[in-house]
């Protein structure tokens, strides 16, 4: 079993879960360098259902933030109105993403296309872990 991942490509945030809000202007304005690099791609977004029975817990957040730091692109995860820098373990913990909730993964930068699927997979993974600890 894997989590549901849907949504793709650049474009509006119209498919975001109800209650989500767009990034603040200061968050969305790419640097000139990034803007050039992003030409033709744009931000990548996925809606991801959290199927892990423990939700987006510490170990998943740790795994996700370590992977996010391997990319140049900005990685953001939304749970409703709450926004997390995907490279920050503590930001991700503060999302309180419960089992069976949906989060939005937003990846923006030159390697966004390369990054989005592996990152979404971590969020959507049931973990294959020891759920008892």
């Amino acid at each position: 079993m894997t989590g549901k991942v849907s949504g793709n490509g650049s474009g509006s945030r119209e498919f975001l879960p109800q209650g989500s809000r767009p990034l603040a202007p200061s968050d969305t304005e790419p640097s000139p360098v990034l803007e050039t690099a992003m030409a033709g791609t744009g931000p990548q977004r996925r809606v991801v259902r959290i199927v892990n029975p423990n939700g987006l817990h510490f170990r998943v957040a740790d795994r996700f933030s370590k992977l996010a730091r391997q990319y140049v692109c900005a990685v953001t995860v939304w749970n409703g109105d709450t926004r997390a820098d995907g490279t920050s373990l503590t930001d991700l913990i503060m999302l309180i993403a419960l089992p069976d909730s949906e989060v939005v993964l937003e990846v923006d930068g030159p390697d966004a296309l390369k990054a989005v699927d592996p990152l979404a997979s971590v969020l959507a993974s049931p973990g294959g872990e020891d759920y008892t600890i």
Partner: peptide, 20 residues
């Protein structure tokens, strides 16, 4: 408890938020 992930996540959030 093993069957209350919500409580666990909320407690972790509380610790992180407070300790920031």
């Amino acid at each position: 408890p093993q069957d209350r992930p919500g409580d666990h996540l909320r407690a972790l959030e509380s610790v992180v938020r407070t300790m920031r």
